[in-house]
Simulated scan of single mutants.
Amino acid sequence: MASTAKRLLEQLSRPGPHDVLRGDLALVGLPGVVFTPRAGLNLPAVAFGHGWLQPPGRYHGLLRHLASWGIVAAAPATHRGPLPSHRLFAADLRSTLDLVTTLRLGPDGISVDPTKLGLAGHSVGGGAAVLAAASNDTDNARQVKAVATVAAAQTMPPATTAARSVTAAGLHLAGEEDLLAPAAGNAEAISKEWAGPAQLRMISKMTHLGVTEGTHWSQLLLQGKPQYTAQRRVRALFTAFFLTTLAGDDTYRKLLDTDFRAARIEYDNRAALTNA
């Protein structure tokens, strides 16, 4: 790995410079959680979709990490049953962006810039994030600029079909040892159908639940368990991606442009679209 990219990976895998506040979305009518920097105006914001059967609590570390780097991060706690509606889950992700954009956040009036919105998700939450991003065409007031997924799962309607209309920047991470959402069946197909600039990376040794935190009964049904190293890599790449695409900070672009063994690039169409 190039020395600059290695330094950025290590830097972004650690908490950022901001103190973090936590809030409850249920107070405004939508079950879920929101993490924000202690202060800031016109901040970028990301709505995160949980994986199948997973509570948002299994991603609090990731959400808190994004907030520590100046990004408002919120996750709805809806559609957690065995038969979730992917379409309605996607709508809840859009609603989450509406809430954090229009409501007063924090005691000092933290605000979100409606032109700096992103979506993210794990497993079915990643697929739902793709569905939510595809509705950009019908939601001119809340245009999503960036989408990041990890171990994205197929949805109904299909996330692969929805990806054909997503012009936002995309970062898709897949686990090298993920048996439930293998890259060849999900993340790769979504990446190659992506209408906008997209990159697919393979996270070394990561299983399906590697990005989750703590313990949960669903580990008896699903493959894998929390993996600290995988979590650090996902946090660093998500942070670099959203700071670059939403905050307009090119400080961390080198990390996104560098291919390295721990998160090797499997597909990248960004240069082709830039030169088109």
Results as ranks from 00 to 15, higher is better:
M1F: 05
M1S: 14
A2T: 14
S3A: 14
S3W: 13
A5T: 06
K6N: 13
L9G: 05
E10T: 11
L12A: 10
R14K: 15
R14A: 12
H18W: 12
V20I: 12
V20Q: 14
L21E: 15
D24Y: 06
L25Y: 04
V28I: 07
G29V: 07
V33N: 03
R38Q: 13
A39S: 14
L43D: 10
P44F: 00
G49H: 04
G49I: 01
H50I: 01
L53T: 10
R58D: 02
Y59W: 04
L63H: 06
L66E: 04
A67W: 02
S68H: 13
S68Q: 13
W69S: 07
W69G: 01
I71D: 09
P76M: 02
A77P: 02
A77L: 01
L83T: 12
H86V: 08
H86D: 09
L88M: 11
L88P: 00
A90P: 10
A90N: 10
A90M: 02
L93P: 10
R94L: 05
T101R: 10
L103W: 14
L105W: 00
P107Y: 09
D108K: 08
G109Y: 00
I110L: 12
V112F: 09
G118M: 01
S123I: 00
S123H: 04
G126P: 03
G127D: 03
A129N: 00
V130R: 10
A133H: 05
A134F: 06
D137M: 02
T138E: 12
T138D: 14
V144K: 05
V150E: 00
A152F: 04
A153M: 09
A153E: 12
T155P: 03
P157R: 03
P158Q: 12
A159I: 08
T160N: 11
T161P: 10
S165V: 13
T167M: 08
A168E: 06
H172K: 10
D178T: 08
L180E: 14
P182C: 00
A183V: 05
G185Q: 13
I190Q: 04
S191Q: 11
K192T: 15
K192F: 02
E193Y: 08
E193H: 15
W194G: 15
W194S: 14
A195T: 12
L200V: 01
M206S: 06
L209A: 14
G210Q: 01
V211C: 04
T215P: 02
H216G: 01
L222Y: 13
G224I: 08
P226A: 02
P226Q: 09
Q231G: 05
Q231F: 03
R232G: 07
R233Y: 09
R233N: 15
R233I: 14
V234A: 11
A236M: 02
F242Q: 06
A247Q: 14
D249Y: 08
D257W: 13
R261H: 15
E266W: 08
D268C: 09
D268L: 11
N269W: 02
A272E: 10
T274D: 05
T274I: 04
T274S: 09
